[in-house]
Amino acid sequence: MTSPFAHVTESLIRHRGVLGAMVVGLDDGLIVDSTLQIGVNGNAFAALTASLYRKARRSAKAAGFGATTFLELAAEQGRVCTAGGRELVLVVVCESRVNVGLLRVELLRAAEQLP
């Protein structure tokens, strides 16, 4: 059975440098659907990125900046990008070399389909 989000994750993982794409519950950090390359620990990325996104959302709201729509975490050995709605977020794990601008546009577009 194919989930309604399969086409979203499959589309995102086609980008050069993307290692995994997931739809994740924002409140519980659990994977709803995912397309991952072998070796990517989807559960850890889902849980921790959802937690970071929640934190950013709360902080931005408290600072008077309104709702958060996109987050990118750049690290020494890769990036994680997140965009989302109220209940679900898209989490993409990628290499440092990924085209962040293009990925951001795709993520924001895809996130519009999430509840």
Partner: peptide, 29 residues
């Protein structure tokens, strides 16, 4: 308000195997 985001990132990086975080960018309304 916002400094807590970096604390959360540091905590996440300990488990993700991506090394130390270098930059966080987020967009709001």
């Amino acid at each position: 308000q916002l400094s807590g985001v970096s604390d959360e990132a540091s905590r996440a990086m300990r488990h993700l195997g991506l090394g130390a975080w270098r930059q966080i960018v987020f967009e709001t309304e």
